[in-house]
Design a protein around this nucleic acid. Structure first.
Lengths: 136, 136
DNA sequence: GTAATAAAGGACAAAAATGATCTTAAAGGG
DNA sequence: CCCTTTAAGATCATTTTTGTCCTTTATTAC
């Protein structure tokens, strides 16, 4: 449970790979996919959606590919995860408009709220720059 | 992302409803399902699996139904959630045997481990007894 | 015993997540 | 201009999750 979806996992793998490239280096989805063990077509979709929100930049044609949209120190795990799966929300009860009519008397609510806060805080404290550093 | 599955959500709703019953009171799945807004057949499956591990007790025939397998103070949210979705594991990388060959050099790993720990700690600190108390 | 009740269990159906394939559009190289 | 490269986009296939339905088994009431 509480598992990151594959989409989320793949997105992170791909973005960390990009973060490990020399600044300005453009790489092919095919390369990223192979290196990270992610289905190429699926990763392509993810990167495409990231291009739309500026998380990555993309170039077509010969010499084309992807690179990070801004410095890895300015992209947090939270941003990546939320870009791919929407805002963190461990329980449907927490979602905004009318999704839980029993919210007022729902005693489970505050628990999920705490969890949501913890997760977001942790994810937001980690940047792609941190993750790009190889472990010794 | 990081969302509880419906199964998990339904399980919690059902168990909290049981916890709110007078001690020893046996209730029908149909009653629980209706009161909590959960698909009856789905909830039945969940309770059936809970019966096997003693989280609830079940009785067939007239006057049959379900009740908690032990005192609500001795059932934590973590136990309910794990019973229904397996052990908490926000990232496949963390799962045991061979699911992530790149675990050793995976820098994301420790982050998920922290998240996993936080979630488990919070969920384990809340019992059905806590949740059964109506909010004022 | 027989009938009624209600969970157990299995097989099936619908929906969502995951993944592949094919066509289109943009960019560069000759 | 034409060909190649590579992302963009749309469509389709597979798998998993979610949900239903039907039959069987246990229990109670008569």
């Amino acid at each position: 449970m509480m598992e990151l979806t594959r989409k989320g996992e793949y997105a992170i793998r791909g973005m960390v790979y990009l973060a490990r490239q020399p600044a300005g280096k453009v790489v092919l989805v095919s390369e990223v996919a192979e290196a990270t063990g992610v289905p190429q077509t699926f990763l392509a979709k993810i990167f495409q959606s990231f291009a739309k929100i500026g998380l990555v930049n993309s170039f077509r044609g010969t010499g084309g590919g992807f690179l990070l949209g801004r410095h890895p120190s300015r992209i947090t795990l939270l941003q990546v995860v939320e870009a791919v799966e929407g805002s963190i929300n461990p329980n449907r009860c927490l979602t905004g408009e009318g999704s839980c009519e029993r919210a007022p008397e729902c005693t489970v609510h505050p628990v999920w709220q705490r969890i949501q806060g913890e997760i977001a805080a942790i994810l937001d404290s980690v940047t792609l720059e941190h993750l790009a550093k190889e472990k010794k």
